[in-house]
Simulated assay, not measured.
Amino acid sequence: MLLSIAVYCALGAFAGILAGLLGVGGGIVIVPMLVFAFGWQGFPPETIMLLALGTSMSSIMFTSVSSSLAHGRNGNVAWGVAKGITPGILVGTFCGSFVAAQIPARYLQIFFVCFLFFVVSQMLSGKKPKPSRQIPGFAGLSAAGGIIGVVSSLVGIGGGTLSVPFLLWHNVEMRKAIGTSAAIGFPIALAGSLGYIVNGIGAAHRPDYSFGYVYLPALFGLVAVSMFTAPIGARIAQTLPVPQLKKCFAVLLIVVGVRMLYKALF
């Protein structure tokens, strides 16, 4: 148990830095790493993906608070946008967790890998928005929030891989898009965690120390470290060339995605 918690702490340190640096909440890395770790611990295959998604969502509740506060102190959070998109986020994420609970684990993994490759394509495309494109009104933000929430719950992320491109496409400056995405991560993680807990209560084949589809030892290890490393990532984001860092991150996602796809298919 001590060895596994140490592994989760190391993963939390990495995820926290990514949360602050790239506004991705860390979930895009946490989920595949948890899948590998849970498999290493011998958890039942039919529960591994759901446990990884639920635990990832719960951990992001903490990293998003730490990261968004750090970005807020730097003036890099558009709080009005975050407030407007939250209702759609809450509804979409909560409902999406119920959908995920009904999908066979193998197909859920394949969907996650497809999403990883979508993220990579967005990071490497370098598309620029039209200069006249502006943030939509409440209805548009709610609809966008619902879509971001559903997808986020299916892949266990804080939404940054969708919300950052959405904000950039509407001409929000890069650093403010990252900071706002970190703030949006909290309602996503809150609704998603609740959904995975509700769906997992009473479910068969869950390991000891799990609360619904949240594995508490992994959550403890992730949170204990990531809350301290997320502000470090936010500070780094103020000085390093974020677009170039995103391209390096895209290479990592390709490696992770290929590995997960292989395990899902064979």
Rank of each mutant, 00 (worst) to 15 (best):
H205N: 12
W40A: 09
T229H: 01
G221D: 04
P129S: 09
G257E: 05
F186L: 12
A78C: 15
G42Y: 10
I17W: 08
M227R: 03
V214P: 01
V164A: 11
I89M: 00
A177H: 02
H71S: 05
P104F: 11
A218G: 04
G149P: 09
G149I: 10
I110T: 08
V214W: 00
G158W: 00
Y215F: 08
I236V: 15
L69S: 02
G84H: 09
L116W: 03
W169Y: 13
P104R: 00
D208G: 08
I28H: 06
K176M: 10
S193L: 02
C9H: 13
Q41C: 06
H205F: 09
E46V: 14
Q109G: 09
M61H: 01
G195Y: 03
P241G: 15
G75P: 06
G75Q: 15
I60P: 01
M33A: 15
V77S: 09
P217Y: 00
L253M: 13
K247G: 13
A177F: 03
A237G: 04
T63P: 07
S132K: 14
I48Q: 04
G54N: 06
T47F: 08
W169M: 10
G145K: 03
C248T: 13
G195M: 04
G146Y: 03
C95W: 00
S210Y: 01
V77P: 00
A204P: 11
Y196F: 13
M61N: 00
V251Q: 15
H170E: 15
S163I: 12
M174F: 11
F211E: 00
E46L: 12
I184F: 08
S121K: 09
I5D: 11
F249H: 07
K83M: 12
V258C: 13
S56M: 08
V99H: 06
Y213H: 01
A37D: 14
R206L: 00
F98R: 10
P187C: 10
T161I: 06
L21I: 07
G84N: 07
P241A: 14
F14S: 11
L2D: 13
C95V: 12
G27H: 09
L2T: 15
L261T: 02
H170K: 14
V251M: 15
F111P: 07
I30F: 10
S59M: 07
G20I: 06
I148H: 03
A78M: 05
A191P: 06
P136Y: 12
G16V: 03
V29E: 04
Q244I: 11
L222W: 02
S121N: 15
S97Y: 00
I103G: 02
V81P: 03
L116R: 05
A13P: 04
G26P: 03
V150D: 02
I5S: 11
L34C: 11
L261V: 06
S181K: 02
G126Q: 15
V150K: 01
V119W: 05
S58W: 01
F98A: 07
A237I: 05
V225K: 01
S67F: 09
G25F: 05
